[in-house]
Write a protein that binds this DNA or RNA. Sequence first.
RNA 1: CCGUGAUUGAGC
Length: 376
Amino acid sequence: KHGYAQLVRSCGSPRDLQRAIAIHAQIQASQFRHDRFLANLLVEMYGKCGSVADARRVFDSIPDPNKFSSTLMIAAHSQHGQIVQARELFDRMPEKDTVTWNGMARAYAQQGHLSEAKELFDRTPRRDVISWTTLVLYFAHYGRLEESWRSFHRMPKRDTMASATMVAAFAQHGLVEDAKSLFDGLPEKSLVAWNSLVQGYVQGDLDEEATAMLERMPEWDIVSWNTALQSYVDLCDFDRARDIFRRIPERDTMASTAMIQANGQSGHLDDARRIFEEINFKDLVSWATVIVAYANNGKILEADEMFKKMPLWNLWSSTSMMGAYAQRGNYSEVERMFASIPDRDVICCNLMLECYAQDGKLKDAVKIFERMPKHN
RNA sequence: CCGUGAUUGAGC
């Protein structure tokens, strides 16, 4: 049973879905077919692997779901934006505990339904540090820093994560002074708080302060390395970026993606491509980044080749490819791609708008402008 | 034996 549990837990992302299905089948064929503990883990697994439908099927097959089952199912629904289904389950649960309440509040908050989240928070019977941290995080995330800070202040007990959340909130909103003074007063300074502060300095173009903090840090984790790397990439300082990249002990996909970008900026397309090929887990972002690197250097054929090779397209990858055609002035291809994108956002529409404008197609430009879901 | 919270990468 613990062997199965381990197997199930090893599937944590959509790329594991095939294996997940196989493991599920194996459990079905075993003596643990009706085991609730394993079923709960399967619900969680399918949620993480991106198949809510399968998660729900497993959940519905549990004769006597316990609160773990339900809380996991709520999480699966909300991870996929199915807040109504999540709430339905939540309302039907006989025994809810703090974890359940926190999970439901977070589901609302993530979707930007902050008043619903706050209402749930207010009704939570035994609020804990996580309930409060969720408020701090999402108020900040949606730019409501006053309320974020007030929640932080009203917290009866703060822990390291709560404090780090607040430091990051300040840093991300250009309030790096406030971030710093909060940070200085912290009894326990987590690496996350250090990293957030450095990112605040980088964002504020305070490079000396950022460097000073990086040097004073007790240790670096992969995020620290990537933060340093990305700051040089943003400054188009290829040599320092490469130096950092080479010194990273264990590079992840984000590090490689940043370095692909750096190589693209400097026209080193072969190096960009080599780093891309060496990535173990190529994701949509790394694919899109190579495409942009090729496009920015006028290599439309290579960009197109990569685009066609991608295992999966999303809005960002398609918009990147549209941008590649736009650069070459191939407006008919831009138009064709635009038409094929179902979930266009502002950036995508702006790009189309700009192409029509460049192309002198004023009427089409006006039409796009008027039909855009949002303007900026 | 199972459930909730923090920091890093791409497109106009």
